[in-house]
Computed example of a mutant assay.
Amino acid sequence: MTAHELHDGFGRGITYLRIAVTDKCNFRCVYCMPEEGVPPRAHGELLSAEEIARFVRLVAPGGISRVRLTGGEPLVSHRIVPLVRELRSIPGIEDISLTTNGALLPRLAPELKDAGLDRVNISLDTLDPEQFSAITRLGRLEQTLGGIDAALRWGFEPVKVNCVVVRRLHQDVCGLARLSVGRPVHVRFIEYMPIGDERTGSTRAHDALDTSGPHCPGGIDVNAWDVSDTVPSLELRERISKEALGLGLGALEPVDEGATPSGAGPARYWRFPGAAGTVGFITAMSNHFCSCCNRMRLTADGAIRPCLFSDAEYSVRDALRAGDDERVLAVYRDAIAHKPQEHEVIAGTERFMSQIGG
């Protein structure tokens, strides 16, 4: 804890900031956005890289030590490398991470590493090439797998692979978990969160927008997803262990707390016997972790969001552009003071996930 770490009304120290750099993406995932992409926004609606860095510079003395860059897809932003470099220069920022679909990592990994990016989370929901193409519309499985290879090759540590498990997709979860056997990859399974409603369409845990309609490519009907599609982590872990035993890998074993990969996330980690990496489970639904939530979110258009599942927002864009640092900090403190103790109901929100920053 820093000497000046800010706490919310429930005693939780706020040390982690997630920043949506953009709401655009080079994929068109059926659970994220329409096939034509998101509606264009005026350049002035979004924070510039300089404004984002200035905000972080202002709030870092209040305890922010970890920053995660998200989107949309943050690597489609031409300003991503200079932004990482600027964030790296801010006193108190100890960890800079990024969530990506991995497609652009083979090209950008060297520059990001040189700029000071510490680690990456790569979204991968299936190892089936046809299902991957159906889900992403514009993506190919080998692109994301190539991104994982690039992240390992350029020394990002740790490299985490995020998979949201949806029961009716019948994903090969054991196959995904086995990515951790031969390489130091940390595969994390996230319980599907049905936070969409009839107004917003189904959404999910990492960086989602809207659907393009009730029936999507490959027979994927995202508007039909509901709470029954959530696979509790205990059930999932038992399923993976059973399949792994049948393959001669051995069952998953708990990882000692001191041996877990670094990061600010709430995953609980396990590992196959002798594996180079780990398998994590994030119990977003079956055992939510509001009591230890340490994060705030900054949207691409400059709003602070204290809770993922609340529409309460506190805009700092105008204050940043007016050069009113005191006003920026006052709004930030007000947002922290209004951080709810927990989310009561997971329901549709006015914004979609990739506008929030996940």
Rank of each mutant, 00 (worst) to 15 (best):
323 G>R: 07
114 D>Q: 08
75 L>T: 15
166 V>Y: 13
149 D>E: 15
173 V>I: 15
324 D>T: 12
37 G>P: 08
356 I>E: 08
350 E>R: 15
204 R>W: 12
336 I>T: 08
292 C>D: 14
16 Y>G: 06
303 A>N: 07
65 S>W: 00
328 V>T: 01
139 G>S: 12
278 T>M: 03
111 E>I: 00
154 W>P: 01
217 P>D: 09
62 G>N: 02
112 L>M: 03
289 F>G: 01
305 R>H: 10
177 A>W: 02
38 V>E: 13
88 R>I: 03
35 E>Q: 14
358 G>N: 11
71 G>L: 02
35 E>S: 11
30 V>L: 11
284 A>I: 06
55 F>M: 05
77 S>T: 02
137 R>Y: 13
75 L>V: 11
128 D>L: 04
55 F>I: 03
169 L>I: 08
207 D>W: 03
216 C>A: 07
150 A>R: 12
267 A>H: 00
69 L>S: 11
228 S>M: 09
9 G>R: 15
165 V>Q: 09
109 A>G: 00
54 R>Q: 05
1 M>H: 15
11 G>A: 11
270 W>G: 05
292 C>V: 15
354 S>G: 00
302 G>Q: 04
38 V>L: 10
144 T>M: 10
322 A>Q: 15
67 V>L: 01
221 D>Q: 06
103 A>W: 02
302 G>T: 04
145 L>A: 14
87 L>R: 02
293 C>G: 02
25 C>D: 08
161 V>C: 14
2 T>I: 01
233 S>F: 03
340 P>D: 15
93 I>H: 02
190 I>Y: 07
307 C>Q: 10
256 D>V: 02
356 I>H: 07
235 E>A: 13
292 C>I: 15
311 D>M: 12
133 S>I: 01
92 G>P: 01
74 P>V: 05
176 L>C: 08
123 S>M: 06
30 V>A: 13
186 H>F: 03
73 E>H: 06
